[in-house]
Design a protein around this nucleic acid. Sequence first.
RNA 1: GCUGAAGUGGUGGAAUUGGUAGACACGUUGGACUUAAAAUCCAAUGGCCAUUAUGGCCGUGCGGGUUCAAGUCCCGCCUUCAGUACCA
Length: 1039
Amino acid sequence: MSSLFINRKFALLKSRITIRMKYDFNQIEKKWQDYWAKNQTFKAENNSDKPKFYVLDMFPYPSGAGLHVGHPLGYIASDIYARYKRHQGFNVLHPQGYDSFGLPAEQYAIQTGQHPAITTAENIKTYRRQLDQIGFSFDWSREVRTSDPSYYKWTQWIFIQLFNSWYNNDSDKAEDITELVGIFEKEGNANVNAASDENVDMFTAEDWLSFSSKKQQEILLQYRLTYLAETEVNWCPALGTVLANDEIVNGVSERGGHPVIRKKMTQWSMRISAYAERLLQGLEKIDWTDALKESQRNWIGKSVGASVTFSVMSSAVETSHKISVFTTRPDTIFGVSFMTLAPEHELVSQITTPEQQAEVEAYVEATAKRSERDRMADVKTITGAFTGAYAEHPFTKEPIPVWIGDYVLAGYGTGAVMSVPCGDQRDYDFAKHFNIPIPNIFEGVDISEVAFADKDNTIIANSDFLNGLNYKEATKKVILELEKLGCGEGKTNYRLRDAVFSRQRYWGEPFPVYYVNGMPQMIEAEHLPIQLPEVEKYLPTETGEPPLGNATVWAWDTKNNKVVSNDLVTPSGVEGSHDNGVYPLELNTMPGWAGSSWYFNRYMDANNENEFASKEALNYWKDVDLYIGGSEHATGHLLYSRFWQKFLFDKGLVPVDEYAKKLINQGMILGTSAFVYRLRVNAILEEENIDNINKLEYLKSNYAIYISEGELKCIQGNKEYEKKYEDFKQSYTKFLESELNTTIVKPLIFNFGSCVPIRVKVDYINASDELNVEGLKTDSEFGKEYKNAVFIGENGVIIEGDNEVYKVGRDVEKMSKSKYNVVNPDNICKQYGADSLRLYEMFLGPLEQYKPWNTAGITGVHSFLKKLWKLYIDDNGLKVNDVEPSKDSLKTLHKTIKKVQEDIENFSFNTSVSTFMIAVNELTAQKCTSKAILEQLLVLIAPYAPHIAEELWSQLGNTESISTAPFPKFEASYLVESSKNYPISFNGKMRFTLELPLDMSKDEVEKAVLDHEKTQEQLQGRTPKKVIVVPGKIVNVVG
RNA sequence: GCUGAAGUGGUGGAAUUGGUAGACACGUUGGACUUAAAAUCCAAUGGCCAUUAUGGCCGUGCGGGUUCAAGUCCCGCCUUCAGUACCA
């Protein structure tokens, strides 16, 4: 063996050793991710001696763009919590899955013809790879995908349960529809107190039995918790589908920004309104943020008052028409001087007198033309028309003129109001505008300028039997009187509307529904799932049917219980055709929120083929202990899922009626977008104008281009110059000359404030705001704009020929591919490692807060990890040993334990990271090598930076994963101090510190402080009036 | 308009029950090491004034107040963000 060979071998060995000595995060992270996957380290069992803890993330929609650094924020927080709970000895369920039905995949399919299932599967693969590389402790054996037939089978099953249920207001829960049929057969519907459609006709038992089957089904639809009804919906022509209210932002669709119009359509709806009160009450017992609860309360919009019915007299002739109104102020009924109906109110055409007909029709037409947006934008203009009809006051029997006005909304309450101008500003304005009398029914209140709406600080007057009563007494009394007359009753109204449940889309859950004689029929549960059919194209059909109308195999064979070709459907209305038992299937699909309304239950028993989850699993896990997700779901997902949970609870299918005990909203991580502002030269102030602009404000916000040493440069006015030129008398030119020691040839001052920003890719601007002009010029997308640009000066200003000037600018906004400001976690993991990413995302700031991302800052946490590594391993290998820990290092460890534990429990993850940094800095300074300290430190850090913790843990000789190591126990005794460095203040201002023993009495402390020479200096011979001594905290001398 | 959250250095943020405002980082400046760069290490860094060390004044959006003591509590405003909006 040659010596050369030996040398080479030695060199190789040496390099291998140095690799082991170095913090090689890529290798370490891969190693432990593989280990966790192989050993199923985070698999949760459905039975255990340990107490259970369920940590849930809102599952993502797997978009084609993949994850950006904003997405994992909440997952990192929940992962830290889940890992912490494992250290504490809990059996932790921490699952993840995909909300994989949705519009983008369908849009992509329309454009490319690619089946959404394929793109979705690809996107999920990318998501999984990206999630895995961050090192989450998810139990992937429980993964769910809402678009998977094995999952949506149960979404369809729950839909059937809803269809087969009605809401009994007496028992205050959902009950089986067969019980309702039983009641109808016995006694009709007179005594049924149910959440139902309005205007349900009364019928007796005999009536019921005499009704045709179709009629009976129609009636039942008015009671079912999911029902088919003609509803006015938000129709988006561009997307060819119906949108829910929360899918519309500022009058256009949330996705794509397309216009939305109102349209009447037959749609599936969910009777969520039946649960309004319970959804409201349930908020009391869950630990969600006040902001979130408040927005749900507003959305439910409970108001307590009365309904009052007015009889209508048309042209002084009695009619059978009645106007029903809802009011929260029945106590003001004697202040009614007119009534107002919404222009769309069904009575308008019937009660309008011939004389007023032309005016009313013109008005109705004019309002119909105005879009919803116009009506909302313009609330100041008062418009309306008199119908010529009068209503009769229930008590005074006086005639009340009936008007129509667009300030009354058809969609709220009954679409009609009793107008009390003295007590409501809108009624007041309307009355003033049309010269309608404004009777005052409040004692000692001036209503000559504005209405008096403060119900708690007045006494009713001029109101017959209500005189002298306050709001509460009057309300009670008037409701009693109205009930006596049979023209009103106490009533509670909710703003919450039933939720439309149909979408005219392909990529969603198909309904388990077929139609016989136009009436919907449920497919038996045992035949589920009804899988999405294949279609030629994903667009609506030529006849305007939803995409499923393109399917050729989409009919239900009731004899063989399977989906068959459309050709076999019995042609309806054809003479002599016999019914072969094949019927058309529903063409709509379910909305995005169907699958997400119950997924948290599925995780408990994700692979169960016989039930949506077993009783045992449901009873064991019960509910989510911690739910983390975005606040944008406040009135969508978080309301619908509570509704479904309450329904499932009523049916005895789940053990709790609120599924998430605690919920935290993570804030958004924002991206920095780059803009180029452009200004035309004619807006630039030339030299001769400069003397006129001696205003400080101007200087601050403006820029100047000047020529120095033959080069064009740019400078921005800022605070420094403002300060130096407080009495800004000289010209800007002179300032530049003296300040820059150069001759100004032609200064140009300009302001970018009013310019239109042009978005550019952030890649073209570096950290110092320098613009890569050459790169920008050659860019295929933006290049055209900047062909002739010349870069000048360090501020990234470019000037194009003699005509236009540009300036680079930045703005913080939501991260999005279309804004060119996304930061990909893949690159971060590659360059700094997953542990750095995890720590940095937490370090950025409080979890709930919105905060901008800045990749530059990650070096801080990254070098912290390197320092941590060096605490255990140096060039000579592991340096941890069994020496007795020093007092100082024990103190460092235990104050770290205390702080980190408090932080995790308060979700204050950002301060924990600082605490780790302090601990490592201190232990490094103490040259701590004690295993007793360093081993425990690893457990503290493991939830945050699990890979490095596992690696060092195993290097310390442990053979089991660190993930179940017990969390270190805090011992207060290590923190006990014998002395305190007291801050000594004089009149509240800290002047110096003084080290004093903690066992000193108050008087001794006072004496020690007063005797101190610095105290004498401060007092300068004066006698202090008072000395405040707070033992262990502070001393304040008042003098 | 209403509801909710928030305003602290050049930047992200800390100060959890009123008790040393600016922890921990980023950035910046200076220095060490290096042929050089990177990496690493050391020092300074709220503003202003002064300086030989020592120091002094101001300072948590604005104006008041309570207190020995206020970023923190109270009253009145301003600004920003989010949600919601003619809800009877």
